[in-house]
């Protein structure tokens, strides 16, 4: 019986070409750009902490931040003001979380998002600010 024979090599070359094209297509269509979100977020956090840490104090203390971190009682009284001040400093597309020794101000940290952080040290303790895009 005469049957039409498909040369096996044709099948093999078809599979080989598909494999090669798929591997090369991953780079031929364009290289993705660098992820600049984290350095930008770090810059935002560092600026916000600098602006917060250099304010004049309201009562005693060297700066406003050192004043607020002085004691737990004072921190509890002033945390609303600190929250509002931080909200005004940071742009509207960012959420923030300020961690101090006496407590935390801000929003809970979601899992798996890119965050930027900055740290400031005052005479009364240190704070860490984390920011992320909404």
């Amino acid at each position: 019986m005469d049957r039409g024979q498909l040369p096996l090599s044709l099948l093999e070359v078809a599979v080989g070409v598909v494999l090669v094209l798929s591997l090369v297509g991953t780079v031929a269509l364009g290289v993705p750009g660098p992820d600049t979100r984290e350095p930008q977020l770090d810059a935002y956090a560092s600026d916000a902490v600098t602006l917060l840490a250099n304010e004049s104090p309201e009562h005693t203390g060297v700066t406003r931040l050192a004043e607020v971190l002085d004691s737990s009682a004072r921190f509890d009284r002033e945390r609303e003001t600190l929250d509002r001040r931080l909200d005004r400093i940071l742009p509207d597309n960012l959420l923030y979380r300020l961690e101090t020794d006496h407590g935390v101000v801000g929003y809970p940290l979601p899992a798996g998002v890119t965050t930027g952080s900055a740290r400031a040290t005052t005479g009364a303790g240190s704070v860490t600010l984390r920011v992320w895009y909404v």
């Binding site: 049957r3 096996l8 090599s9 044709l10 070359v13 080989g16 070409v17």
Partner: peptide, 18 residues
């Protein structure tokens, strides 16, 4: 029984294309 034969010209052309 007829068997599929890998013929030499087909092989050569296939390798060239690949």
């Amino acid at each position: 029984l007829p068997r599929a034969q890998a013929s030499l010209p087909a092989l050569a052309i296939a390798l060239l294309i690949l």
